[in-house]
């Protein structure tokens, strides 16, 4: 019996495929699935089958019916469409024509990168803080352990408004502003994005650029925490294969201090033109908050510790997007901006 069903299936499929028009197809359908059709006839002989086999055969027969019905339907579509060639031709569109232009602008690449940095650190439990662009000498220098006439002030050439007011040379003053406000409450965990200004103007320096500052202060923040946080940041920003390298350095407001390199994203650390064959790219400065800074901001440096870091947004954007010229960021050239989406 099963054998017969299979034969019927094969035979029917052949007939369906060969049908030339809808009328013919309909006729075939009646002959197979109709009241007196082949399938019905076959099922009538179910009585001759052993009782225990009947349910199996019955199920197979029903499956076959459904299958054939679908096959008829598909063939019907095919035959109907074939009959409308003229109509289709009349309605033809040139699908190679461009689509209807919608409007879409884009955020500035520095905004895109800043938002990404914010997202990463918000995810790590840091809060976003802000400070003014025009700062006092106290917040920009004095409180950050740059005494007047200290050679360290030469590291950052400032634009002055008055002898006591200047354009902030880094986002670090936000560290002091936040701690002053919060002391002695713990923990402090902030990042502070913003504009900074230095008296430098050449192919690789812009008088205005952007930084993101980070600060964490608590009862037991360690250098290892700094290293872990920055490694996580580097991996989220540049990919999970990233390695970081810390080199001892000097900033008046951190001790110990470290410059942080990431493995070169162009050559994956093998050495290339971008990383001057070192395999490493410097991306930020960091360190443990200097006790003088903690004290001036209202914390007991014997009881709390902290780490801080600061990174240049332009630098990160240049690496991330492969931008070669720093000036591109501030000419607002649409041929540049539109590369981030049009």
């Amino acid at each position: 019996m099963l054998q017969k069903l299979k034969e019927l299936e094969k035979e029917s499929q052949l007939k369906i495929d060969k049908a030339k028009n809808l009328e013919e197809l309909k006729e075939i359908k009646v002959r197979i699935l109709g009241k007196k059709g082949a399938l019905t006839t076959l099922l009538r002989s179910l009585g001759t089958v052993a009782p225990e086999e009947r349910p199996v055969i019955g199920k197979e027969a029903n499956n076959l019916r459904a299958k054939l019905e679908q096959a008829f339907e598909r063939k019907e579509y095919e035959l109907r469409d074939a009959g409308k060639e003229n109509q289709w031709e009349k309605e033809r569109i040139d699908i190679t024509l461009p689509g209807r232009p919608g409007l879409l602008g884009q955020k500035h690449p520095l905004t895109l990168v800043t938002e990404e940095i914010k997202d990463i650190f918000i995810g790590l439990g840091f809060k976003v803080a802000h400070g003014p662009d025009i700062e006092t000498d106290f917040y920009n220098y004095e409180a950050l352990n740059f005494p007047a006439d200290h050679p360290a002030r030469d590291m950052q050439d400032s634009f002055y408004i008055t002898p006591q007011l200047l354009l902030r040379t880094h986002t670090s003053p936000v560290q002091i502003r936040v701690m002053e406000k919060q002391a002695p409450e713990l923990p402090v965990r902030i990042i502070a994005p913003g504009k900074v200004f230095r008296r430098d103007d050449d192919a690789t320096h812009s008088p205005m650029f952007h930084q993101v500052e980070g600060l964490a202060v608590d009862t037991d923040i360690t250098f290892a925490d700094l290293k872990g946080t920055l490694l996580l940041f580097a991996r989220e920003m540049f990919g999970s294969e990233q390695k970081i390298r810390l080199r001892p350095s000097y900033f008046p407001f951190t001790e110990p201090s470290a410059e942080v390199d990431i493995s070169c994203i162009m050559c994956a650390g093998k050495g290339c033109r971008v990383c001057s064959d070192t395999g490493w790219l410097e991306i930020l400065g960091s360190g443990m908050v200097h006790p003088n800074v903690l004290e001036i901001a209202g914390y007991d440096s014997r009881k709390v510790t902290g780490f801080a870091f600061g990174m240049g947004v332009e630098r990160i954007a240049m690496l991330k997007y492969g931008i070669g010229d720093l000036r591109q960021f501030f000419t607002n050239d649409l041929r540049f901006l539109k590369q981030f989406g049009e």
Binding site: I122, L124, G125, F126, K127, V128, L186, P187, R189, A216, D218, T219, I221, T222, F223, A224, D225, K227, G228, T229, L231, L232, L246
Partner: peptide, 14 residues
Amino acid sequence: IPISLPSGELIENR
């Protein structure tokens, strides 16, 4: 120096 992450109280940080 090993790597670790700061532990500590959660803060409202949006």
